[in-house]
Amino acid sequence: MNVLMVEPGKAPYEMQIGDDLRSMQAVVGGYIQAVYPYEEPVALICNEDGKLDGLPLNRALRDSDGDIYDIVAGNFFIVGLGESDFTDLPHELAERFAEQFRQPEMFLREGDKIVAAPMPDEQVQGGMSY
């Protein structure tokens, strides 16, 4: 199935993966966790133990005010939602989320908060450009 892959330090890109559990686990490097932070019919699939396992922080998830409420650790992908399962991510949604996650981020502790800053362009590894 078609998904949007988002890796730490890289630009997002579309890729094909199997629609079985083993394929999804291989992409995120462990047990999967599906979260549904968007109104669109999509799921964000990540490694459920990514933070506990010390995987590199990837991208921040923000609320409607732009404030960070969580940070995804390790690889994750965006997939479409069917009636009862995951399905191909339509290209239009892939483009929308590729733009949202276009800029890799680095994270800094500032007092009692964690803040996200864009990763300098010279540190960003290639991906698909939109």
Results as ranks from 00 to 15, higher is better:
105 E>H: 04
87 T>D: 11
128 M>L: 06
94 A>Y: 03
20 D>Q: 08
55 L>M: 12
64 S>G: 12
130 Y>D: 07
81 L>K: 12
69 Y>I: 09
14 E>C: 10
111 G>Y: 00
112 D>Q: 04
100 Q>M: 10
49 D>Q: 10
57 L>T: 07
89 L>Y: 00
85 D>I: 03
69 Y>F: 14
30 G>F: 02
65 D>H: 10
56 P>E: 04
18 G>F: 07
55 L>Y: 11
122 E>P: 04
46 C>K: 04
32 I>T: 15
55 L>W: 00
58 N>E: 04
21 L>N: 14
96 R>P: 01
19 D>T: 13
116 A>T: 12
1 M>S: 13
46 C>D: 01
58 N>D: 08
2 N>I: 01
78 I>P: 01
31 Y>P: 02
120 P>Y: 01
7 E>W: 00
5 M>C: 08
115 V>H: 04
62 R>D: 04
119 M>T: 11
21 L>Q: 12
75 N>L: 01
113 K>Q: 09
17 I>Y: 08
18 G>D: 10
24 M>K: 15
62 R>I: 13
19 D>E: 11
12 P>H: 02
75 N>V: 13
95 E>V: 12
37 P>W: 00
45 I>N: 07
117 A>Y: 06
74 G>N: 07
3 V>S: 02
111 G>I: 06
31 Y>Q: 09
29 G>S: 06
6 V>C: 03
78 I>A: 05
17 I>Q: 04
111 G>M: 01
67 D>S: 10
120 P>T: 06
4 L>W: 01
64 S>R: 08
128 M>W: 02
18 G>Q: 09
114 I>C: 06
62 R>A: 05
29 G>K: 03
86 F>G: 07
24 M>A: 15
127 G>Y: 00
3 V>H: 02
116 A>H: 08
96 R>G: 01
43 A>E: 08
42 V>R: 03
33 Q>P: 14
113 K>E: 10
125 Q>D: 11
127 G>Q: 02
117 A>Q: 12
108 L>H: 12
4 L>A: 08
111 G>T: 05
33 Q>E: 15
9 G>K: 01
102 R>A: 15
123 Q>F: 10
50 G>E: 05
125 Q>A: 14
128 M>S: 13
100 Q>A: 13
122 E>S: 13
102 R>C: 09
7 E>C: 07
77 F>G: 06
56 P>I: 03
123 Q>W: 04
51 K>D: 13
